[in-house]
Structure formats: structure tokens, C-alpha cells
């Protein structure tokens, strides 16, 4: 189990670095300001009970947004994230992942 987790983590690190370049960070910035900043904060630091996005790599952001878009609950803010993510296209998710992973390090 531990080995599997480590492998998964390593895979995330590798693919995360590669895929951070996939999206358009500039397009992601606009979308972030419009749809995300009011809860996660303009600098991604998190506010109130909304989590910080600092240090999250692109693969993590893509994975979470895809999970929410699929309607799956992850954590106590799923009620807000699922309807927000349901509107996102694949390229929206790539763009957000590129912006968040490169801006809130």
C-alpha cells in the first residue's frame, strides 16, 4: 500500500511538472478572478473555511476539479465546488491548473 502511494505521488510530481505547461495561465487568471478568487482569495491563500491553493501542482488542481465536475464529494465544501466545477470545460480546467500552479507557489 505504502509503495503504491509513493508511486502515485511520484507520478503526480512528474506529470504535474509536465502538464503545468499544457494550459494557458493567462486565460486561467481571468477565470480564476471570476469564479474562484471570491472564496480562495486573490492570491490563493484561502479565506475563512475555504482552503489555500498555495503550493498545489497542476495535476492536483486538475484532479480535484475533475472529481468535482463528476459530482463526487470531496470534503465539506463540495456543495459549492460541484456546481462551480460542473460548468468547466477540459480546457478551462487545464487553464486554471496552469495559472494556480504557477502563481500561488
Amino acid at each position: 500500500m505504502k509503495t503504491q502511494l509513493l508511486c502515485a505521488f511520484a507520478a503526480v510530481l512528474i506529470t504535474g511538472t509536465a502538464q503545468a505547461q499544457d494550459g494557458d495561465a493567462s486565460a486561467g487568471e481571468s477565470l480564476y478572478a471570476q469564479s474562484c478568487a471570491q472564496c480562495h482569495g486573490p492570491e490563493g491563500k484561502g479565506m475563512a473555511s475555504f482552503p489555500s491553493l498555495e503550493g498545489r501542482d497542476a495535476e492536483y488542481i486538475k484532479s480535484r476539479l475533475t472529481t468535482y465536475r463528476d459530482g463526487e464529494k470531496v470534503g465539506p465544501n463540495s456543495g459549492l465546488m460541484i456546481p462551480n466545477a460542473s460548468k468547466l470545460s477540459d480546457s478551462d480546467i487545464d487553464n486554471l491548473a496552469a495559472y494556480i500552479s504557477s502563481s500561488f507557489e
Binding site: S49, P76, N77, G79
Partner: peptide, 11 residues
């Protein structure tokens, strides 16, 4: 935590 919006501890 509970099964509610904003349902984490500390609500």
C-alpha cells in the same frame, strides 16, 4: 464533520 454544506468541524 457532518454531511452538510460547509459541514467541516468548527461550523
Amino acid at each position: 464533520a457532518s454531511d452538510h454544506p460547509f459541514g467541516g468541524p468548527g461550523a
